[in-house]
């Protein structure tokens, strides 16, 4: 049954006065997490914007029980919590809420370990495509050509294909989602909550400060990322790969919105837009991800290997 907005809870999960920047995709995402999963959730948050967004103790600007933890080991801390709840006979969903640095770079070892062990957690990577909390430095998930404060003329390497890397661990559930399509994200979260074992959701999260766009455009830019094909929405469940409806229509590149429409709203891609060669490189990066996705859709993954 399709998700109806009217059926979603209307409670405030983020309090006014929390420390997020205007237009922050993380507070949007956190709200959707609680709308999807309800109150039976504990968050584990490594260093990152969300450490700050909570605000200053003894209060918290977001209404979750939270174990804040060191940068590199969010997944392991969550595994420990999940094991404890299991031993204590409590049914609690343990959710990691980590940025792209805490997931793809410094936290990657712990992520890979938890995935391989198939620990019973939901891991959400909030991908704003750079180290935003320390001031917009490039990360493994910064796309090719993007300006950051450590890549002044644009990043020279492509984005690490993290959702595919996690998928290669053959865990029960991997999905990509975006703050631009909350219903899709909420549906994926709800599905993840019904599955035992390791669940990974990669949440695309356009950052007005780091990407250099107007804070009113967060959702629009997130949607454009999907409509231009720059970010692909999919699900990998029990060894089966499926493009999500919002991305399914963009299999055919001709149906996609021109990539420039997504790039031109963002300050970080200005050098790419001025340089046809760089633009082609970025296109090639995106095409490669589509090639992988379509191969997987054809059934590259073997269902027998699933856990």
């Amino acid at each position: 049954m399709p998700l109806r907005l009217a059926d979603l809870p209307r409670r405030r999960y983020g309090s006014p006065g929390n420390a997020a920047c205007p237009g922050c995709p993380e507070t949007m995402g956190l709200r959707y997490v609680k709308m999807a999963l309800g109150d039976n959730v504990v968050l584990v948050i490594p260093a990152g914007c969300s450490s700050v967004i909570q605000g200053i103790r003894p209060k918290s600007g977001i209404n979750f029980p939270i174990l804040n933890i060191v940068f590199a080991s969010a997944a392991s801390a969550a595994s420990g919590m999940s094991s404890a709840f299991e031993m204590l006979g409590q049914d609690v969903k343990v959710v990691v809420w980590a940025g792209d640095g805490g997931t793809a770079d410094i936290g990657f070892q712990a992520l890979s370990g938890a995935a391989e062990r198939n620990d019973d957690i939901i891991y959400i990577c909030v991908d704003n495509e750079a180290y935003m909390n320390t001031g917009i430095q490039r990360s493994g998930l910064t796309p090719y050509g993007a300006w950051t404060t450590t890549t002044w003329t644009g990043k020279t390497e492509p984005k690490k294909p993290l959702p595919f890397i996690v998928l290669a661990h053959n865990v029960p559930y991997v999905a990509t989602a975006t703050v631009g399509y909350p219903q899709d994200f909420i549906e994926k979260l709800r599905k993840a909550a019904t599955i035992r074992g390791f669940k990974y959701i990669h949440l695309h999260a356009p950052c007005p400060v780091g990407w250099r766009f107007d804070p009113s455009l967060t959702a629009k830019i997130a949607q454009l990322a999907v409509q231009t094909g720059a970010f692909i929405l999919f699900e990998y469940e029990n060894g089966r790969f499926r493009l999500s409806p919002y991305s399914g229509m963009y299999r055919d590149p001709k149906r996609r919105v021109p990539l420039e429409e997504y790039l031109k709203l963002q300050g970080r891609f200005q050098t790419v837009l001025k340089d046809p060669q760089k633009l082609e490189m970025l296109r090639a990066e995106i095409d490669e991800m589509w090639r992988w996705a379509l191969l997987l859709e054809k059934g590259m993954a073997s269902p027998e290997l699933k856990k």
């Binding site: 174990l67 590199a72 801390a77």
Partner: peptide, 15 residues
Amino acid sequence: HSALAATLGAAAAGA
């Protein structure tokens, strides 16, 4: 690094 993080997580959850 993960060993102590997992131990801390479990302990914080009450075990």
